[in-house]
Nucleic acid binder design. Structure first.
Length: 536
DNA sequence: GAAATATGTCATGCA
DNA sequence: AATGCATGACATATT
């Protein structure tokens, strides 16, 4: 423990000798070996740091240009698509959800959210514990900034070269595997994972290509991520997109929505917006005249939009829609569950899209082969439009009483309009009631029929059991008769002669004794006399 | 064209 | 009293 003092003594001695030798023209660094070694180490470290900073700067300059006024790096128009979402931002906004697989992976979370200066304090705080991994930060920095321009091998190489020695020993491939696996997990991939490249490097390359390719990036800042080979009619909705807009939507948040009716890519982005709009309409009891007049109710939208806008009435399609419609009706057997709400919402979005594409459809005459339901719904809808009612038929029927009353009172409706809107509501309610009533009746009939079938089966079983018992009784009687005859044949009197069956018979008493009785006596009394009865 | 079926509507009673 | 719901009865359209 005397080393420090000994070292100071050595240095003092060296200092003294140096001062002596300075006078002789000798430089001190010849003597100060320890100090010189430390200075060399510090210089090397600085050079390494400088080299690293130059490398980073070089990378940044490839993607950004320096704003001469502010000193900040600005995105370069040539290298960064103005509409494209940066990888870090896209990844961050996509994975920053409660249930995102990325956030469940501390390694990738640390990688993705390590840019302290660019993140809001709340997010930074959430991952503060993970930010103490400088090597991971640096890895992300390089991955993020170079992803769109550098081959993957270069990224790996840069990271590998600049990582500190101990971290370099951790296999970069293992880290890469972890990252790529997590990235692939973080996507709501429609296709089975088995169809993804098995090589993690390929996965990462594919993802990087997806983000860096301007043609693949979504035009809106919604950060919607498509799977690498997304089917045309499916959209992957990041959970945050709905959560951030309306928390209640997350209750029935559909991560995958079938948008077979959407044919254009830009319509894909309209789906979640429409969901939110519809939700807002419900919350705010949307009374926008322009929207209301042009709107149609759920039923009409389901039938008319598909039937009219397509210009074809494929029977199978119509039946399928009708089935969906029946399932969707909140009145029909379904209580207002989240599931029903989800279906309504999705269907409404579907309707909105169709309605936008064919705004004039409601003015067409109903087709002759349409079901009665469609026609009558259409009639109400037409009346509502003709009278300029501020609500869609769907809203008129399904709004709560308070909201409905508030709506019709706030819209200054005349007597005819109020009468019509109340008629539509009453008929709609009663229509639903009649449907559920008939459904209950049919269910009751089905239950009764099932009960009848059960009783018939039970009757058959009892009948079979009765026949079986009768058969067994008969067989037992036959056996008893045979046994009786066998016993009677073996009986002999004192002379060794057999008894005549016509004169005698065997009788079984309650105590188990069998008596041989003459027929005449047995017929007269059940009590055998001592002189006549013979115990067998 | 008649019968069966499906659906909407009205009237009524009940909670 | 107003409202929603259930249900029988009737009307209408479709099969």
């Amino acid at each position: 423990m005397d080393e420090p003092s000994a070292q100071f003594q050595d240095e003092d001695l060296i200092d003294i000798l140096w001062r002596q030798d300075v006078d002789l023209g000798v430089e001190r660094d010849i003597f100060d070996g320890c100090l010189r070694q430390r200075e060399e180490e510090t210089t090397r470290a600085r050079e390494t740091e400088l080299k690293r900073e130059r490398e980073l700067e070089r990378i940044m300059q490839r993607l950004q240009k320096l704003d001469k006024e502010t000193g900040e790096f600005l995105p370069s128009p040539s290298s960064v698509n103005s509409q494209a979402v940066p990888l870090s931002e896209a990844l961050h906004s996509t994975v920053f959800t409660h249930r995102s697989p990325v956030t469940q992976n501390p390694l990738l979370s640390a990688l993705l959210f390590s840019q302290k200066s660019q993140k809001p304090p709340s997010q930074e705080q959430a991952f503060s514990e993970l930010l103490s991994l400088p090597d991971l930060q640096y890895y992300l920095d390089v991955l993020e900034s170079e992803a769109s321009s550098l081959p993957l091998e270069d990224i790996t190489e840069i990271c590998h070269q600049n990582l500190p020695e101990p971290q370099r020993e951790n296999s970069a491939d293992a880290l890469l595997c972890d990252i790529t696996q997590t990235i692939s997990d973080s996507f709501e991939v429609v296709q089975p994972l088995s169809s993804l490249p098995s090589d993690p490097v390929e996965i990462l390359e594919t993802c990087i290509q997806t983000f860096s390719d301007p043609g693949n990036s979504t035009p809106s800042p919604s950060n919607t991520i498509y799977s690498c080979s997304t089917p045309e009619n499916q959209v992957i909705l990041p959970k945050h997109q709905i959560n951030s807009s309306d928390s209640t939507l997350s209750e029935f948040c559909p991560y995958t929505i079938n948008t077979s009716s959407l044919s254009k890519p830009e319509q894909l982005n309209s789906a979640p917006q429409t969901l939110i709009q519809y939700k807002e309409r419900h919350v705010q009891l949307g009374f926008d005249d322009s929207a209301s007049v042009g709107s149609v109710d759920l039923e009409t939208s389901l039938y008319a939009a598909d039937t009219f806008s397509n210009g074809q009435s494929d029977k199978d399609e119509l039946e399928s829609i009708q089935s969906e419609y029946t399932d969707l009706l909140p009145l029909s057997l379904h209580s207002e569950t989240e599931e029903a709400t989800l279906c309504e919402t999705i269907t409404y979005a579907h309707h909105q899209t169709q309605n936008e594409s064919t705004p004039e459809y409601s003015q067409r005459e109903p087709q002759a082969n349409l079901p009665t339901t469609v026609r009558r719904v259409h009639r109400d809808e037409q009346q509502a439009q003709a009278m300029n009612l501020p609500l869609s038929v769907h809203d008129i029927i399904n709004l709560p009483v308070e909201a409905f009353n508030e709506a019709i009172s706030s819209c200054k409706l005349n007597h005819t309009q109020q009468s019509l809107i109340r008629d539509i509501r009453r008929r709609g309610k009663n229509k639903m009631a009649a449907q559920s009533c008939r459904k209950r009746k049919m269910d009751g009939l089905n239950d009764l029929e099932e009960e009848i079938e059960d009783l018939k089966r039970e009757k058959e079983q009892i009948k079979e059991e009765n026949e079986r018992n009768t058969r067994e009784l008969h067989e037992t009687k036959v056996k008893l008769r045979k046994l009786y005859n066998e016993v009677f044949r073996q009986l002999r009197d004192e002379h060794g002669n057999s008894y005549n069956p016509k004169e005698y018979k065997l009788q079984h008493s309650t105590d188990g004794t069998v008596y041989l009785l003459p027929h005449s006596t047995a017929d007269k009394t059940n009590t055998p006399t001592e002189d006549l009865a013979v115990a067998v």
